[in-house]
Each structure stands twice: as C-alpha cells, then as structure tokens.
C-alpha cells in the first residue's frame, strides 16, 4: 500500500459534501493578473517600441 497523498478523503476537515471555494485565491490572482497586464503594456508599448534604433529589417 502506498503512502498516502493518494488516500481517500478522510472526514475530519474535508468539508463533507460542500466544495471549498478559494475566493481569496481568486482575488489574489486577479490582482496578479492586473499587474501583469499593466506591466506588460508599459514595457512593450512604451519602453520597447519607444526606443531608439528599432530594427526594421
């Protein structure tokens, strides 16, 4: 018998039938998504395309 992250869900804290909704995770990751998009738009469109000597060929 192998150990045990593969064992069936025990009753102590699995929350029974109710599924756990990671609402805090969703909120955190939404913040992360917003930071990524803003940072990307800045670095690509302003920092990169705004530079001298753009390689065109």
């Amino acid at each position: 018998m192998s150990r045990t992250e593969t064992a069936g869900a025990p009753a102590d804290d699995a929350g029974g039938d109710e599924e756990f909704d990671p609402v805090g995770t969703l909120a955190l990751i939404a913040v992360y998504f917003a930071i990524l998009v803003i940072a990307w738009v800045y670095i690509y469109y302003i920092e990169f395309l705004g530079r001298d000597l753009v390689v065109v060929g």
Binding site: P22, G24, I29
Partner: peptide, 22 residues
C-alpha cells in the same frame, strides 16, 4: 500552479480560522 498552490494554502488558512477576502 499559482492558483492551485495558493488555493491549497488558503484552505489551510481557513482551517486555522482565517476569514475575509485577504
């Protein structure tokens, strides 16, 4: 991975009595 791992940790925090969005 970011989602799954943070959700796993959040579950722990909730078990320890954590509340709220953050």
């Amino acid at each position: 991975t970011a989602f799954t791992v943070v959700a796993s940790v959040e579950y722990g925090a909730r078990q320890r009595g954590g509340t709220g969005i953050f």
